[in-house]
Amino acid sequence: MIIIEELKKSFGPNEILKGVNWKQVRGDLAVIIGPSGCGKSTFLRCLNQLETFDSGKISIDGIVIDHTGQKNSTTEEKKRVLELRRTVGMVFQNFNLFPHMTVLGNIIEGPIQIKKTPKDEAETIAIELLKKVGLQERANFYPSQLSGGQQQRVAIARALAMKPKVMLFDEPTSALDPQLVDEVLYVMKEVAEEGMTMLVVTHEMNFARDVSDQVIFFHSGKIEEFGPPEKIFTEPDSPKTREFLKKHLSSNSKN
């Protein structure tokens, strides 16, 4: 489903991604953890081309962006990037809802504008999704009238409305009051249980431990170690993983 080969990316002289390889099967949920600045967010953003990468290859649901050899024609690639983005949904740390549209407007915007779904059909889908995230009575509110947790749930519904094959979550709960984190994690869990292929960058270790199929530990631009949560959280191979988890699990329990 997701195949990443030797992904490299630099910002000026700083190499952020130093050759990342990753494979993920359909329906799996992988959680990416790691210290800040290790490149995990950049990696996620490369997957839907919010960041371009310098070399390597990504293949998601059969859509291939290949920068290993010669650069291909750009118009051809542009088309594929659009296709890729329509296959991959993304949820951001800061929600990024469109403030000039209602909740319903936010959700139907993509299907109507991009997929040319008829309005009534798009609205039916949107109402379904709002029910799923528990906000059907907020359909005609504006984002500024919602709490952070509610906004993030709308953002998830907005991404799902495009019927993506893969969902990316970039620290979806980091900007939330701790009180509001659970309602978002609950919705994510639901989405995962329906068989969505997901990649989640997060600091929520409990979520990683309880829900994920794979945990990826990122360290200075590379995947240091990955494996099922029970292995990573109890007997990781790398001392770097161990050190990170020690710091993080203890700080987590303090909260």
Binding site: N48, L82, F98, E109, I114, A155, M162
Partner: peptide, 20 residues
């Protein structure tokens, strides 16, 4: 983030400008 959210949905730059 507004431009990012719009492009992440699959909008072209032009559409994102016009709509968002």
């Amino acid at each position: 983030g507004q431009m990012e959210a719009a492009t992440a949905l699959g909008m072209t730059k032009f559409m994102a400008l016009r709509r968002i």
